[in-house]
Design a protein around this nucleic acid. Structure first.
Lengths: 197, 197
DNA sequence: TCAGTGACAGATATTGAATTTTGTAATCTG
DNA sequence: CAGATTACAAAATTCAATATCTGTCACTGA
């Protein structure tokens, strides 16, 4: 695999970059593939050589953006140290990430929200990543014996219980308020529950 | 207080009844106070003698509907018996109520959802009621000694953790699917957490 | 004085025609 | 033949004219 494994990759990312610039400038509702093409001095038909549809282009944009958010979370999940600590830091970081993006990157967040509504594959991938990270933390806690109550459903259950702190609809509804303390308490409750044999 | 403590009460409820009928027929977006007035053969200006604004009328409609949902929950909260049992039944009933209404009473649910978005006082009242019921169950569990970990924040925390199963945005997103089993597991987790001294 | 009305201004929603955008196909070019 | 284009039909979006709705006020009749 050379850095340029595919030739068209270059054009592909140029298109994504241009689309992201326009998205940031005008918001998700005004993003037209004709405009993306115009910004690059190419015909819009050519964009369709690289992306099957506007939805696909849009989805990849969101996926790229979400990928950037996932880095810090993956790092925490992979760290050594006691699982309960990591769970709390992981959850708090997730909450903070989402909260920051609502106010700090509103166009992208709106795009993410829109993609989430139509349950696009980019968002599903994001959720799958988060789920996997959570599963790893919980499995570790089980293995070390701190959390005997961990089962195959625990990741799903924990994710559900903390979703009010990261789900776009609810994060936005709370005006991106900092609910870290409430989240910390919920995590403590869950932690205690998982410890019970 | 006689049954007819206020004279205008009669007209008030006639207006609410007519509004509810129209709401069920045409959905929340098509509900116009001119139409409500027309249905009753009165001028719309008269409706404004009984309700300060369309929002207020709308809010009372939602409040009335939500009140009907709260009965069964209040009953469970007030029952005798072990608090953990009641918590689970209460949470499952809440989930079932919301789920049923999504499919069985879609116009009203949409109205509720709309009111919830603008955080109207009717919805706040609903949440306050639920919160009070939950507080009562938790306090009972604390008093009897099953749940030593209950604190002043517990009601808020538990409500947050199970909100994914009753919040309109999330209930609808899940296509009103029955998530009772997941909810039961989350409740078990919380129960275990509250038991830890 | 109380339940109700008609008439009104400003905000909002509806509608349909014009425009733009999406997505496809046939074609061009190095 | 890979990368790009023009041309085009169908779908979606704008936009402005039009109509409807909200909320207020002065008023009526019992």
């Amino acid at each position: 695999m050379t850095p340029e494994s595919k030739v068209g990759d270059d054009t592909r990312s140029r298109i994504l970059d241009a689309a992201e610039a326009l998205l940031r400038r005008h918001g998700p509702d005004k993003l037209a593939v004709v405009d993306v093409a115009r910004a690059l001095g190419m015909s819009h038909a050519n964009v369709y050589r690289y992306f099957g549809s506007k939805t696909e282009l849009f989805g990849e944009l969101v996926a790229r953006w979400l990928g950037r958010l996932e880095g810090p979370l993956a790092a925490i999940a992979a760290e050594p140290g006691p699982a309960p600590d990591r769970l709390k830091r992981w959850a708090l970081t997730l909450h903070r990430q989402k909260r920051e993006k609502v106010s700090g990157d509103p166009e992208m967040f709106a795009a993410f929200d829109k993609a989430a509504e139509m349950a696009g594959p980019s968002v599903q991938g994001h959720l799958a990543h988060l789920h996997a990270q959570l599963t790893a933390i919980l499995a570790d806690g089980k293995a070390t014996g701190v959390w005997p109550a961990v089962t195959e459903h625990s990741a799903e259950d924990v994710f559900t219980a903390i979703s009010p702190f990261s789900h776009p609809a609810l994060v936005q509804a709370n005006g991106a308020a900092d609910r870290s303390e409430a989240l910390a308490r919920v995590i403590d409750l869950i932690d205690a529950g998982l410890r019970s044999s």
